[in-house]
Design a protein around this nucleic acid. Structure first.
Length: 491
RNA sequence: GGGGCCGUAGCUCAGUUGGCAGAGCAGGGGCCUUUUAAGCCUCGUGUCGCGGGUUCGAGUCCCGCCGGCCUCACCA
């Protein structure tokens, strides 16, 4: 490595000695590579300037072929000594793969039929001092090591352009089309605090930081929920935020400590309205990103066309595990039933968590029994401290989760707007916290105060953007859809 | 956090039973005015992840550590 870097540094010095600035301030590109190829006939006889990274260089005595790659694609250039002059031709020796060049000339077609720029003059725009991952069979760059690909994403994007760039373009389109969809329905995009004095809206451990001047600890948000609902109180009836959230939890194939979630809230709606909103939105996004609502995820066909299946959580679990948790109203009898059914039951888990575990075997991961897009609805109340109780029940909350292809896409409920009930739920959480559950939610007095002003009945939804990106780009690891995933420190 | 697998040249990878560290591409030098995985001649790739140990001798065996991937647990 140092040898090659030395060689490149010497070339850099040689360029400067020849009075050539290797990092000039201006470029004069007027045509993108893909455009030049597409508009070949129209551009005949015209002098055009293209620019991009030097990806291949084949010297042939008194002429050379090279490929330049820009954001649109790749084009071949032909540098002939007679055309560029002796000095400029000799200077080819000072070029390296990876350099950023600008070339001016006219288009022609080679003997082998490739549309090519016949170069009159060329200029170096940025000298590259580092070695690119090298060519393999077929002439493509090869960079497979996932650690390098994630730590040095720029190399990944250069080397794995055909696979990597489309993923992040798709992700951008997911965000754009989600905004289009919500904006068209009158939702207002807002930004709420990432630094929060109390964290809430989800069950998770937070990152803690400190503000020096105010001399107080602050939490990086685990969810924007409680702020968005304050805005409903304030009269913004449809609101959403595309929020980076931070959870101080483990890292694995479907979890990154910082991740992106879209949360939206609609006043005068309930969770059934939200189901319709969500299935319409996901179908719209798939249509915009993929051009269809039918595709494969990890080999399993997925069809996001509305309406999606709607199954009460209890029935889904009963159908696929044979266990009816309503028959076991307390934690211990359910644990015994699960034990009989072959589950290894963690004695620390509360009843709600046991039900969660049953749900996961039905719906999560590659072994999921149910992979079609589906809303599982009506969840145990004690798992859902911010959701409204279902009328006519004592232990059921109006909550649903959306799934497809074994991925959990989002979580929604009819929002709890009874301030006294909310206070009681928070106090219940506080007892769990005192009992050692450090993920139980904190009592947020200011939020209760907002509810006392009056929150209209509302439905809300939170959906993971990273997981949606995984679904629509057919990736099985969240690290493939996050440009710079959280990594361990390099030591 | 537990378990499994992995870490050798810039990249992708070989490396036998413990016996002089290799290939292709990339790189240096030379030839070649329509090549395209260009071709031909030629030269060198190195803290074998790091630190110990065993051994006459360790890339190879043992221990510890670092990092990655998979998996289980937990969370979303």
């Amino acid at each position: 490595m140092s040898d090659e870097r030395e060689a490149r540094l010497e070339k850099l010095a040689a360029l400067r000695e020849a009075g050539i600035e290797p990092y000039p301030t201006r470029s004069h590109r007027d045509t993108m590579a893909a455009d030049a190829l597409a508009r070949y006939d129209e551009l005949q006889g015209q002098t055009i300037t293209i620019a991009g990274r030097l990806m291949q260089l084949r010297e042939m005595g008194k002429a050379a072929f090279a490929h330049l790659e820009d954001g649109s694609g790749r084009i071949q250039i032909y540098i002939k000594r007679d055309a560029v002059g002796d000095e400029a031709f000799r200077r080819i020796r000072l070029l390296d793969l990876g350099d950023i060049l600008e070339a001016t000339g006219t288009l022609f077609t080679t003997r082998t039929g490739e549309k090519t720029l016949h170069v009159d003059t060329y200029t170096i725009l940025a000298k590259s001092l580092a070695t690119l991952p090298s060519k393999g069979a077929g002439g493509d760059l090869k960079l497979f090591d996932p650690e390098v690909r994630q730590r040095k994403r720029y190399l990944d994007l250069i080397a794995n352009r055909e696979t990597g760039v489309p993923i992040f373009l798709a992700r951008a389109k997911i965000l754009a089309s989600m905004r289009d969809f919500l904006n068209a329905r009158g939702f207002v995009e807002v930004e709420t605090p990432i630094l929060q004095p109390l964290y809430g809206g989800a069950t998770a451990r937070p990152f803690i930081t400190h503000h020096n001047t105010l001399d107080r600890d602050l939490y990086l948000r685990i969810a924007p929920e409680l702020y968005l609902k304050r805005l409903l109180v304030g009269g913004i009836e449809r609101v959403y935020e595309i929020a980076r959230n931070f959870r101080n939890e483990g890292v694995d194939r479907s979890h990154n400590p910082e991740f992106t979630m879209m949360e939206c809230y609609q006043a005068y709606a309930d969770y059934e309205d939200v189901m319709r909103l969500v299935e319409d939105m996901y179908a719209y996004i798939a249509q915009q990103v993929l051009g269809t609502t039918k595709f494969d995820y990890l080999g399993v066909p997925v069809d996001l066309t509305p309406p999606w299946k709607r199954i009460p959580l209890r029935e889904a679990i009963l159908e696929f595990t044979g266990i009816d948790y309503d028959q076991y109203p307390d934690r211990d009898t359910l644990a015994v039933a699960m034990g009989k059914a072959g589950y290894t039951v963690d004695p620390k888990l509360a009843r709600g968590r046991l039900i969660d575990e049953l749900k996961d075997t039905v719906i999560k991961g590659e072994t999921a029994k149910l992979k079609d897009p589906v809303f599982l609805y009506d969840y145990p109340r004690d798992l859902s401290p911010l959701a409204k109780q279902k009328p006519g029940t004592s232990d059921t909350a109006e909550r649903f989760q959306a799934f497809a292809g074994g991925l959990e896409l989002g979580n929604a409920f009819t929002e709890l707007n009874d301030p006294l009930d909310q206070r009681a739920r928070f106090e219940d959480q506080a007892r769990q916290r005192a009992g050692g559950d450090d993920e139980a939610q904190m009592l947020d007095e200011d939020y209760i105060e907002a509810l006392e002003v009056g929150l209209p009945p509302a439905g809300g939804f939170g959906g993971g953007i990273d997981r949606l990106a995984m679904l629509l780009t057919n990736q099985d690891s969240i690290r493939e859809v996050i440009l710079f995933p959280t990594m361990r420190e390099v030591k």
